[in-house]
Each structure stands twice: as C-alpha cells, then as structure tokens.
C-alpha cells in the first residue's frame, strides 16, 4: 500500500506539473498572439482554437487526479461537526466508492467519444486551414480514469484500516 501511495503521489504531482506547463503555455501563447497581431500584424494562426481545444481541455481534466489526491474537491461541509470518527470513515468510504464509479463511468463513455473522433479525424477549419483536434478528445477520459484510480486507492486505504488514514491527505 505504501509504495502504491508513493506512486500515486508521483503521478498526481506529475499531472500537476503538466497542467502548470499548460497554463503557462496558454498565457504565453495568448500574449504573444496579442503582441504579434498588434505590433507585427501577424497573429498566430488558430490561437482561439488551440487555446480552447487543447490548453483548456488539458487544464480542466488532467489535474482531476491531483485534486482528488489532495482531497480538495469542493464539498458542502454541512455535517462535518456531527460525524464521529467512525461515521466519518464510513462516509469517506461511501463517497470514495461513488466517486470511483462516476469517474470510471465518465472515463469509459468519453473514451468511446475519443475513439470515434480519432477514427473520423475530427478537425476544425480556421480561415481555410485544417487544424486536427481529435487528439484533445483523449484528455477527458485520461483525466477521469486517473481520478478514478486515485479515489479507488483512497477507498482501499479506508478499507485497509484507520491506521492508514491517520495522516490525512498528502501535502502538495
């Protein structure tokens, strides 16, 4: 279990790193486009499409596993005070189970969309140029499946026993 957790930490931090790079690339790309368009009259073609189809999809879905690993998914903490440690463990377990199911299902259904997009070779037409966008359809299933893996691991830890959950949530 320990080595699994180690691997999960590496994986989630790796995803956060990729996401951060994507975020920074988006900043640089858009700013450069604005600068080149205004000062050199040569905008970067298809900035709009690349930002929305690639950077945005990347930064929304890939970090999900990292967010789950850090346990920073947003909840409405209406019952926090009322729960006994045991009740909390049961509740955590149930939520982890449900989350694994939902992420897994989302991963599965979006995976089929990605395969279809790849088969078709989905592209967008920007001022007469063809921009392939099908690869970006693989980002949501990747993000969902990795998130499912994280919540499944959490479930396993909870089932394994209270000692394993003693130190709550790893640091960033």
């Amino acid at each position: 279990m320990k080595s699994l957790e180690k691997a999960a930490d590496y994986l989630s931090q790796g995803l956060a790193l990729i996401g951060s790079i994507g975020l920074f690339a988006m900043l640089a790309h858009v700013t450069l486009d604005v600068a080149l368009r205004n000062f050199a009259d040569t905008p970067i073609p298809a900035t709009n499409e690349i930002v929305s189809r690639y950077y945005m999809v990347l930064i929304v879905f890939l970090p999900l596993a990292w967010v789950e690993r850090q346990r920073t998914m947003i909840t409405v903490e209406v019952m926090e005070m009322l729960l006994t440690p045991r009740g909390r463990r049961i509740s955590d377990g149930a939520v982890a189970l449900l989350a694994t199911g939902i992420y897994g299902f989302l991963g599965w259904v979006t995976w089929s969309v990605a395969l279809k997009s790849m088969a078709i070779g989905t592209f967008v037409d920007v001022l007469g140029h063809k921009i392939a966008v099908w690869p970006s359809y693989f980002l949501p299933p990747a993000g969902f499946v990795l998130a499912a893996a994280m919540t499944a691991l959490r479930l396993a830890i909870i089932i394994a026993g209270p000692s394993a959950t003693a130190e709550e949530g790893p640091e960033t």
Partner: peptide, 26 residues
C-alpha cells in the same frame, strides 16, 4: 443520458471565453 454525459464535459471546457477564468485567476 449517456450522450449528455459524453459531450458536456468537453463542450463546457473547450470554450474560448472560458479561458478568461484561469487567466484572470492566474
């Protein structure tokens, strides 16, 4: 129902105007 589950996540995220959110946050 599966159709909505399949396309809403991508459609929602892959929007140019939505990119203002992370950039202003940053």
């Amino acid at each position: 129902a599966v159709g909505i589950l399949q396309n809403t996540p991508y459609d929602f995220a892959a929007k140019w105007t939505m990119s203002a959110v992370p950039m202003f946050l940053l």
